[in-house]
Design a binder for these strands. Structure first.
Lengths: 328, 328
DNA sequence: AACCGTGTGTCAATCGTTTGACATAAATTA
DNA sequence: TAATTTATGTCAAACGATTGACACACGGTT
């Protein structure tokens, strides 16, 4: 059995109230007593019962993270960086892989709701889940707009799309393929598409659109891409995520096109993993560290009820990582 | 304020005891009452207070996952598959990225211990952390041997190393480089090395060893690899993880060696990500689904106190994924 | 001598749920 | 009709920590 407050008190030779005072730092306390209590806690390896504390209205120090899937390198990095920052503040993170499945997401919310977690950070992409409104929990979101007043952090998707178009046009591309790795209605990352299209049209370039549902497998994507590549023979491709961009490069080569000579490719995300292990891929890099930082900061703002000056949207700057899938 | 048991009782027009009975399925209950109670819970969107239940000795339904870093594709996949299975059983997962840092791991254990989680699944690689023994929690581990009687699941590292050696020897390699992506003392994956060395020596092949500490960056690894590649001019490389294998391929090419003509490369892990997005890499594939399955199953065995017939070690079979980094 | 700040103790209520003991009443069965 | 079984209610004690009210020291100030 785990030691309880009373055990610590007995060992330290003080009352439970005093031990509680030491733990919660209230009232007057002599250095000697504190010392005795701490050493008793140490000896017993005492950990206060979280459950009991929560019942008193204290915080769980638990945050739910709802994302589509940590198998995506960008999400993995976002989750890891968030988790690091939460840990530094003494918080734990519950991981929820929604697989972009609204039902699963709803179930997760149910689990997290009520009194279980103190707050939620979500980067999942589903529409109109009423529990988000009901929960009454502090929530912040990544790359996702909500109806209600939930602060959203995202990279500058519009600028990213525009930049990708501008760079490829500058380097001679004229017939574009625009590949959306996942298609949702209210996701801000649709701006990646509109930004790209806008600039392309401005320069009189053609844009062929290809879109995949989130759950389409790489093999399905490959088959579709191969067909579209052969049919439209683009000389520039912009993908809204890096993994799809990798498939494009590979399928283009299989189809006999040279990258970047015949067709240039730019992806989006620029996770550390992609930067390190796919050295050829040019991509629009999201500032993941800043994103994690801001998400956590915003959440704590709401946790501490400083509802002051929280904006609805925070858009962080992106940058281009130019590598061999782009011409010099 | 969240609705509580009493609110549900009032709305349903029954006593709190009855509501509790419905929730916990004890005693006699008429269908009509159950219906009334369920609909009241629905209406109020009632969620029982986890904290209060835990205080009664119920389970938190919370499991801690301690792994080095979810940025590693294999770990991400293991974590995701574990999380899926836990979720299916109504459990939540707390994610802990230890970064292979013993202090961080110790802190995590402290957080998880006491009364906070019901069990722990760890794939982290640190030595002699006394809290593991103290915790008294059900623990199962992945690819890691413990002193105490903690069940360990791993892939057949020995066979994996042997297979890698045998295949490359068969395809003509004689001078090997053996690259360990991380070096720990008590990790079963050292068997990957010994298995490889054993077969190589048996066939009279030379083996040059290169080892990296866990936290060495890709750039450091690259620099070291380049130097070692030029110095020893191997015609076969086996890496204990896929990411390092990718670096080997890239650096070998930069050094003017052809893969697989001049040098063959085999990695280890074979995560879905690597299979999909690094189509060239040959690798020893761990059965991640089975591993996750077994880990969760073993944990639940201990959670339910069925301490029957738990083995110390569970070694699952591996297989070779042969692709272009190996000769035909 | 009266007063205050400091340090500690006792006591009891509280958080929300569970559970056992016990009572009661209707429906069912012997 | 009597004895069960079924269905529900009341009551109160847990679970472990927190906290406010209050008491009572002791030392040092005025």
């Amino acid at each position: 059995m785990q030691p309880k407050l009373a055990d610590v008190a007995k060992l330290a030779g003080v009352s439970v109230t005093t031990v509680s005072r030491v733990i919660n730092e209230r009232g007057y306390l002599s250095a000697a007593t504190k010392e005795k209590v701490f050493s008793a806690m140490q000896q017993l390896n005492y950990q206060p019962s979280l459950a009991a504390r929560v019942l008193q209205g204290k915080q769980f120090k638990l945050v739910g993270l709802i994302f589509a899937s940590v198998e995506n390198p960008l999400i993995a990095q976002v989750v890891e960086e968030i988790e690091n920052r939460l840990f530094a503040r003494g918080y734990k993170a519950i991981i929820c892989n929604s697989m972009d499945n609204p039902e699963k997401e709803q179930q997760y919310l149910k689990m997290l709701m009520a009194n279980q977690v103190d707050g939620i950070i979500t980067g999942s992409h589903n529409e109109g889940i009423k529990e988000y409104k009901m929960s009454g929990l502090p929530i912040v979101s990544y790359d996702r707009y909500f109806q209600t007043k939930i602060p959203t952090v995202s990279s500058d998707n519009q600028a990213g799309g525009e930049l990708a178009a501008r760079v490829m046009i500058e380097k001679g591309s004229k017939r574009f393929m625009l590949v959306s790795g996942s298609l949702e209605k209210r996701a801000p990352n649709n701006r990646r598409l509109t930004g790209f299209e806008h600039v392309a049209e401005e320069h009189g370039c053609s844009v062929q659109m290809v879109a995949f549902p989130f759950n389409s497998t790489p093999n399905i994507r490959r088959a579709t891409l191969r067909e579209k590549l052969l049919a439209s023979q683009p000389d520039g491709i912009f993908c809204t995520d890096d993994q799809t961009a990798l498939l494009c490069i590979q399928e283009a080569r299989k189809a006999g096109m040279r990258v970047p000579e015949d067709v240039q490719v730019i992806g989006y995300d620029g996770s550390d993993y992609v930067q390190e292990y796919h050295p050829e891929l040019s991509t629009i890099v999201q500032p993941v560290g800043d994103i994690a930082d801001l998400l956590v900061r915003l959440l704590f703002n709401r946790l501490q009820k400083n509802d002051d000056e929280l904006l609805d949207k925070y858009v962080l700057p992106i940058k281009l990582l130019q590598r061999d899938s782009l011409r010099k």
